[in-house]
Computed example of a mutant assay.
Amino acid sequence: MAIPVSVNVPLTNETIDATHKNHIVPDQEFLLQGSVLDTSLGVVIDRLRGLCDNADIPPETFHDHEVVYVLKDFNAPSNPGPAAQGDILRVRHAVDHPELPYQLRYVGYPEIGNHPALLRNCLDVPVSNNVCEFLQELGAKLDHEFVAKGSIMKKGRIKVTVFKMYKIGPGMSKDNLEPMTMSHLVELSVLTSKTDMAVADDLRVLADQLKPLVQLERMDYRRLGPP
């Protein structure tokens, strides 16, 4: 079996020049999350289109399949805590665009601190489509999987995603999925580095402009277990 081949980690346009000069990779992510009922989705999308860039263009849509693995370090101490639970590795690919590379994402545990948004280590790497077999060979265990369908918008460096999560069960196809809830997840996120922390304030400003339609908070859903 071939090892997945990765390419350069994608960078935002604003950080490419600084990255090349200083050899810094934006491996930190600020994140705010909330939810909106399906019945109010249209109002939230209209508000976001007015706040985000390119308001005259319909939002880009996506339909992704995500598989989540846990890779444990068996040499780690047996004491309870994040280290004992293992590292979370997420593999995502676009269902409607099989020609695109798979995405392997590592997401760290939230950092402690008084930040305007949740702050965690995050690294995205395009890989080959045999990445799941590769992770299993490393000893990673399948934790859960789901399908996400929704829209993506941009506000400067901030990425805005509004999507619904679906269960995957026996006999289900990409056109016949069972929704997990009667709501959509709303996420505001931005990739940065430890030298550029002010962008979290921009994230908070955008979140405040969405009130009272949706309440975006610092949440770590991994504490709740798999969906």
Rank of each mutant, 00 (worst) to 15 (best):
A200K: 02
G169M: 09
V107S: 06
V199N: 00
Q215W: 04
S189C: 11
N130Q: 07
H63C: 07
F30D: 04
G86N: 07
D208F: 04
S40H: 13
I152Y: 07
K211G: 11
Q28I: 14
F146H: 05
H97P: 08
Q215K: 11
P179N: 09
D46E: 13
V95S: 01
T161R: 10
V95N: 03
I24M: 10
F146K: 00
D17A: 15
D38R: 14
E14D: 12
S40W: 06
I45R: 00
M219S: 14
T192L: 02
L135R: 04
T181C: 07
P26C: 11
V95H: 03
Y109F: 09
N114E: 15
P98Q: 03
V147G: 01
F163S: 12
P4N: 09
H65K: 05
S6I: 14
L32M: 11
N75K: 13
S35W: 12
I24D: 14
D201I: 12
S189K: 11
P227F: 02
V214W: 00
F30R: 07
Q28H: 14
E29H: 02
E133I: 05
V160I: 13
K154R: 15
V131K: 03
L216V: 00
V5E: 15
Q33H: 09
V43F: 02
I3L: 04
M197D: 06
A117I: 07
T161E: 12
Q103I: 15
S78Q: 13
L37E: 14
L123R: 14
S193D: 12
L71F: 02
M182D: 12
M165G: 05
V205L: 08
S78Y: 13
N54E: 15
Y69H: 05
D220A: 00
G225D: 13
L138M: 07
S193M: 06
G139F: 07
F134Y: 02
L100C: 08
V91A: 01
Q28S: 10
T192I: 04
I57V: 13
M1T: 14
K155E: 10
D56Q: 14
I152S: 04
L210T: 05
S189V: 05
T12Y: 07
H65R: 04
R204Y: 06
H184Q: 11
E99F: 10
P212K: 00
I112Q: 15
V205H: 05
L135V: 03
I88V: 15
L41Y: 03
G171Y: 04
D73M: 08
H97S: 13
R204D: 05
V162H: 00
E14R: 11
R204T: 10
M1S: 15
N13R: 08
V95F: 08
G150V: 05
D196S: 12
L31E: 11
T181D: 08
